[in-house]
């Protein structure tokens, strides 16, 4: 029964593995992009002037109020020219793969960015104001305050919520398959369709996702232990 998962031309093992790795790659890039967008938007919402704050609020509200699938469709079908331009910059060539890959990463970044912005904003609110007063009293410049106080503190308070955003992003990668990008979900569809073993392949795919979830749970818990945050506003430090 498991012959079908062997590597090589007869089995789907190598295809499934490649799909799983593509899922991880797209999720990781989307999460990274989302954290960058989230950080910029959170800073804009905390420190920016009124119009900028308003723009940041509009972004998080709109993205979180609209289905992820719709955002993917909008970027994939609406961004053709734009993606070919980006693809050329990165020497990816203008084929379908580049379109789907860039649209996928961009859609995941936009979606997870809206959630991380809220996480960072919430975490920034949890950092005691005295920290910044103390930093100022030590004569720190704004950039030093950001690097030495704000970022480590926000990461510590926000880590449990960031783990949630990562899980969301990982699961949203399945939706990218509608663009034709051959990640885990798309590979599973192809394998299931061509072997007519749908039950088998969707079960395998579910197990792979569960493996990813368990692994990320484990790694995030390690990270939380490392910085001593455990989901609560910790006392030490």
């Amino acid at each position: 029964m498991f012959d079908i998962l062997s590597f090589g031309p007869g089995g789907w093992g190598d295809e499934m593995l490649r799909g799983a790795l593509m899922t991880l790659l797209v999720a990781a890039l989307g999460f990274l992009g989302g954290n960058i967008i989230g950080a910029v938007v959170a800073i804009a919402r905390v420190l920016g002037p009124a119009p900028v704050r308003w723009l940041g609020a509009a972004y998080t509200t709109v993205v979180r109020g609209v289905p992820e699938l719709l955002i993917i469709y909008l970027l994939f079908f609406g961004g053709g020219e734009f993606f070919r331009f980006i693809a050329k910059i990165f020497f990816l060539g203008g084929d379908g793969f580049a379109d789907a890959f860039i649209a996928g990463v961009l859609a995941l970044s936009v979606v997870s960015g809206a959630y991380s912005a809220e996480v960072f904003r919430g975490a920034a609110g949890a950092v005691p104001r005295g920290m910044f007063d103390a930093a100022r009293a030590f004569g720190m410049r704004p950039f030093q305050m950001l690097r030495l106080i704000a970022i480590p503190q926000v990461l510590r308070y926000g880590l449990p919520a960031m783990a949630n955003v990562w899980q969301l992003t990982l699961k949203d990668t399945a939706l990218i398959s509608v663009t034709g990008l051959v990640e885990l979900m798309r590979t599973t569809d192809i394998a299931a369709g061509s072997t007519q073993k749908q039950f088998f392949f969707y079960t395998i795919s579910i197990m792979i996702f569960l493996g990813f979830t368990a692994l990320s749970d484990f790694l995030f818990r390690r990270a939380e232990n490392f910085c001593g945050c455990h989901g609560h506003a910790g006392g030490k430090g």
Binding site: K171, A174, A192, Q198, F199, F201, I206, F209
Partner: peptide, 22 residues
């Protein structure tokens, strides 16, 4: 754990294509 750890999209296809095959 299983439901929260897997995408809804995959769950739907598992039911619609996977279970329907049994």
């Amino acid at each position: 754990y299983v439901i929260r750890g897997t995408p809804l999209f995959l769950q739907l296809f598992f039911i619609y294509y996977g279970l329907a095959q049994l």
